[in-house]
């Protein structure tokens, strides 16, 4: 059995050695996943909010669909995006395959439903409280979306974190559309997959510890913002 303690020590050693290769991989992971979350937020938040305040036929079906898409298997998304971006596919002209851009696109597809579904829940709850007052102000349902998003901003951080967690941890999509090319599209998860396939289990586990550390760091940073800015704004 592998020695967990030695993997943990390896992880710390890797971090403090300042290995530039490792840091390049860590930074690429962050770039890809944060970019994907930012883009997914720009799409998913208005979409989720519109679903929360909108009343149209088929709304229930759309809500179920978005909720179900939260469970999209990354490999399936990777395949879909590969088929789109392949030179034999409809978006081949973009020449995005095997670039970080392709990985971002795949993660956007994975993360957008998560952010949209959680946003819908947050905004629906907030709307239940605000809707009479906003109608009294003469704000229409659709015009209330920016207000609800802004006032729900701290709860929506949770949606962003959930999306980030999904993006930074997945390997199935990015390894297909990124190709795990050294120095170009190799991120934490694909490196872990590679080291596992080389049988370097202790190193793979150490990288896993570092990935967990990154996730904790990002969560803590956002959590800190949330705490310091909402300490007493809660009601």
């Amino acid at each position: 059995m592998q020695d967990f303690a030695s993997s943990f020590a390896t992880a710390l050693g890797l971090l403090f050695s300042g290995d530039p290769e490792l840091w390049a991989i860590v930074l690429l992971s962050l770039r890809v996943s944060l970019s994907a979350v930012a883009i997914a937020a720009l799409i998913g938040m208005p979409l989720g909010a519109a679903l929360a305040v909108g009343r149209f036929p088929g709304r229930g079906a759309v809500v179920i669909l978005v909720n179900s898409l939260m469970g999209l298997p990354p490999v399936v998304v990777g395949l879909l995006v590969y088929l789109l971006l392949s030179n034999a596919g409809p978006l081949g002209v973009l020449q995005l395959l095997y670039t970080p851009g392709a990985m971002i696109l795949a993660q956007v597809v994975l993360v957008t439903p998560i952010i949209a579904a959680l946003t819908r829940q947050v905004i629906e709850d907030l709307d239940a409280e605000y809707s009479e007052q906003l109608r009294s102000f003469g704000v229409s349902r659709i015009a209330s979306v920016p207000t609800l998003l802004w006032d729900g901003r701290y709860s929506l951080l949770t949606a962003l974190l959930a999306g980030f967690g999904r993006a930074v941890a997945e390997v199935g999509a990015v390894i297909i559309v990124g190709g795990n090319i050294n120095h170009v599209t190799r991120v934490m998860t694909t490196t872990i997959a590679l080291e596992t396939s080389k049988g370097n289990l202790a190193l793979a586990l150490a990288l896993g510890f570092i990935l967990i550390g990154i996730a904790i760091g990002v969560n803590a940073a956002l959590g800190l913002i949330k705490v310091t800015t909402t300490r007493s704004a809660y009601a």
Binding site: E129, Y130, E132, Q133, F137, G138, V139, T147, D151, A235
Partner: peptide, 23 residues
């Protein structure tokens, strides 16, 4: 004005500003 005031999750000043803005 409702029995339980529905205040926006913003500052006191921003609540008044919001009403003026949407009008």
């Amino acid at each position: 004005v409702f029995q339980r005031p529905v205040l926006l999750r913003r500052s006191v000043a921003a609540n008044i500003d919001y009403s003026l803005k949407v009008h």
